[in-house]
């Protein structure tokens, strides 16, 4: 899962402090592994350096939590590119895809479109594996089958999530 893009996406919902961003992240994505404060501030410093966020204000004498950040147009474009660029099918893809889906819903963007894009990428890989099995020996066939079953599991998750987007949108909005 790409924590940098995810934090940037969360900042796309409105200006925020590092402290609030960390808790926003943990609410959606940190059930198993909450984000460390240090990682949040290091990420924000990188995003600021790269022009993807702006510093709105800083209270003198305050700690890092007193800094308020806002996403820039460049940052919004970066989030959109991240969301709508399908990932290469691989194990444990779902955390990143889940993050993209939630961020798209939080930003009022088209989560269905990004899931369709990812489905197409998975189907492309499935077709490649099916083609690779043609005329191959049994060892290679079984290796391809193993990869195909993982892709099918992802596809089932994509289909189920697509079917539940309305419900998920409501849940995310109320979180």
């Amino acid at each position: 899962m790409d924590n940098t893009q995810t934090l940037l996406g969360l900042l796309g919902t409105g200006p925020s402090y590092g402290y609030d961003l960390k808790h926003g992240y943990d609410r959606f994505f940190g059930a198993e592994k909450p984000l460390a404060f240090g990682q949040v501030y290091a990420t924000l410093a990188r995003l600021l350096r790269d022009g993807l966020i702006d510093l709105l204000g800083e209270q003198p004498g305050g700690g890092p939590d007193r800094k308020r950040y806002e996403i820039t147009e460049l940052g919004r474009a970066r989030v959109a590119t991240w969301m709508f660029t399908p990932d290469a099918p691989e194990p444990l893809l779902q955390r990143n895809l889940f993050a993209k889906t939630v961020i798209a819903l939080l930003l009022g963007d088209d989560a269905g479109r990004l899931l369709d894009g990812q489905r197409a990428e998975h189907m492309k890989r499935l077709r490649e594996l099916t083609a690779a099995k043609r005329g191959a020996d049994l060892i290679k066939v079984l290796v391809c089958d193993h990869a195909m079953f993982h892709i099918e599991a992802d596809l089932r998750w994509i289909d189920l999530t697509s079917a539940r987007l309305t419900e998920l949108r409501a849940q995310v909005a109320g979180a």
Binding site: L126, T130, M148, L155
Partner: peptide, 9 residues
């Protein structure tokens, strides 16, 4: 079924 569909173009 995605696997069946993977035989298509």
């Amino acid at each position: 079924d995605p696997r069946t569909a993977s035989y298509a173009d």
